Simulated assay, not measured.
Amino acid sequence: MEVPGFTLLLQDFCGYCPDFDAEVDTFDCKSLGGAPKATHSIRCRNRRRCARIAENLKVKQQNE
């Protein structure tokens, strides 16, 4: 589902994660003229940690 003004910047392993903690970056577009608008990018604060875990699991699986 696409929601105008919102962008989800999530990894596949983010789905159903109990440690998901939303981090939202907002870009205010009202200074560009016209009606006030904003865009929001949503990602997880724990994304780097989880990416390291996923990479370590991948390496471990390849070594077995």
Rank of each mutant, 00 (worst) to 15 (best):
P36L: 06
P4K: 03
C44H: 02
D19G: 09
A54M: 12
N63G: 15
R48M: 04
V24N: 05
L8I: 08
K58S: 14
L32M: 12
S41L: 05
L57I: 06
E64W: 06
P18D: 00
Q11S: 14
F6P: 03
I53Q: 08
R48A: 06
Y16S: 02
R49H: 11
D28L: 08
K37F: 13
L32P: 01
A51H: 01
R43S: 12
K30N: 13
L9I: 09
V59N: 05
N46S: 06
Q62E: 14
V3C: 03
L57W: 08
E23V: 15
T26N: 04
D25R: 07
N56L: 01
H40A: 13
E23F: 09
D28W: 10
R52Q: 10
V3D: 04
P4I: 04
R47G: 13
D19C: 10
R48E: 04
L57S: 14
I42L: 05
Q62V: 06
C29V: 01
L32Y: 04
I42K: 03
A35N: 08
Q62K: 13
A54R: 09
C14I: 07
P18H: 02
D21T: 12
D12K: 14
D12P: 15
A54P: 08
A51F: 02
C50W: 02
E55Y: 09
C29Q: 07
D21E: 10
E2G: 13
S31Y: 14
P18Q: 03
T39N: 10
A51N: 03
Y16T: 01
